[in-house]
Design a protein around this nucleic acid. Sequence first.
DNA 1: CTGAATTTGTACGTATGTATC
DNA 2: CGATACATACGTACAAATTCA
Lengths: 132, 132
Amino acid sequence: MGLDLNDPRPAYQQVADDLRRGIKGGRYKAGDQLPSGRELARRYGIAPMTVRHALDILKSEGLIVSRQGRAVFVRDTASPAEEVETSDTTAYDAVMGQLQAIRADMRQIEDRLSRLEELVHPNTPEAPKRAR
Amino acid sequence: MGLDLNDPRPAYQQVADDLRRGIKGGRYKAGDQLPSGRELARRYGIAPMTVRHALDILKSEGLIVSRQGRAVFVRDTASPAEEVETSDTTAYDAVMGQLQAIRADMRQIEDRLSRLEELVHPNTPEAPKRAR
DNA sequence: CTGAATTTGTACGTATGTATC
DNA sequence: CGATACATACGTACAAATTCA
């Protein structure tokens, strides 16, 4: 419900964290829609603009997408690398995880781009070479 | 100075673009400080909060860093420059910073892609899954 | 050391526009 | 058309960090 008044961090960060935990923890699943901005503002006891700030952060992290007139949806993203503790997680693993996530995103972008290109010039003789 | 009133894009995006051009075009060099928020608001003829919104975007793109009480600085091009004393800037941090910048760029590309898709193919949200 | 001035950061409130249903 | 929800913009107030007289 409300925020931790003893938490020195700003409200919008606390809200962003809470929602991020809700997403990563399965409370909100991919494709689900989040409660409306007004509803979230009511729940946390803060102003709608502050909720919006929190949502902007999650958006910039790629966790959610918002559709005007509809709602805010949890983004359908590849399962984030499991967060193991520092004992076993080497920097190498963390970097490789990021790189793999980036390549996965790039493949998705390339697919969407290819579909668009086919619409614009429907007769592409050669398929563009893509390293996979 | 002012904004293009014929440009349909929101003011904060136009300002972000203008400043981004200023940075990439050498108008503001790495290490330089940008004009203060109030000054930018005056120049563009918009509210300070709107300037802040634009700066938040550039910040999330890794182009600038802001220091409370001081100013907003241009960051680009592998010169972490000031205050590396504490050796907090390890190679790992540098690599992860680059990765985050790459993901920020990709999100921007995804946004442009989404806009194109909506033009070609109206009404196809990413995950229009109806809630239960 | 104090304190004012400047600048960024956070939060609230309101109004209006736009998209969807 | 009306209700709902997200998007943009403006304005205000105060907090926090920095600088400098």
